[in-house]
Simulated scan of single mutants.
Amino acid sequence: MLKLGELEASVMDVLWNVAEPMRVREVLDELNQDRNLAYTTVMTVLDNLHRKGWVEREMQNRAYHYRATSSREEATAQTVRELLDSTEDRESVLLHFVQSASEEESDILRRALRRKSRKR
């Protein structure tokens, strides 16, 4: 994801895949199924994600519990929005994107645009 380092993205993946807030130790245990990270490394990453607004935390029994501030889908849509806002030629970007879209993705876009036009 844009604005996230590799480890930050991995931590976010863990948080996005669960319904309940997680302690640092729980996030670490999930991540360490595929690697060998230190507790303090994950704690620092979660603190940085909190500072950046990607996660919120709540103190419970002397330990922070972390949860994502938005869903994976909302975060991805925000990234796309920021990319579009960063270019002067949005039309070109959108046209290139549409050309790369699968038939299923094109159908999804058509349905979303029809719903949007009905709301106006």
Rank of each mutant, 00 (worst) to 15 (best):
T69D: 03
V11P: 01
R111T: 11
M43G: 01
I108K: 09
V18F: 10
L109I: 06
A38Y: 13
E8H: 15
L46S: 02
R81S: 08
T40K: 10
S92L: 13
A68P: 06
A19F: 13
M43Q: 08
V11G: 01
Q60Y: 14
V24D: 00
E91Y: 14
K52T: 07
R25Q: 14
L7C: 04
E20T: 13
M12T: 04
A63D: 15
S102E: 07
L37A: 03
M22W: 00
L49M: 08
E58D: 11
E26S: 07
A77G: 00
P21R: 03
E30D: 15
M12A: 07
E30G: 04
V55W: 01
S102F: 03
D13E: 15
H65V: 05
F97Q: 04
L94A: 11
Q78E: 13
V45G: 01
I108P: 03
R57E: 14
E56I: 06
M22H: 00
R120S: 13
W16E: 03
Y39T: 08
V27Q: 01
R67Q: 15
D107S: 10
S117D: 09
V11T: 05
E26Y: 00
G53Q: 13
L31G: 02
E103M: 07
Q33A: 12
L109D: 00
W54N: 02
L113V: 11
S102R: 05
S70W: 05
L37C: 04
A63R: 15
R81M: 10
N48W: 04
E26P: 02
R118M: 12
N48V: 11
H96P: 01
R62L: 15
K52S: 09
R115H: 11
R57Y: 12
I108F: 12
I108G: 04
D34I: 08
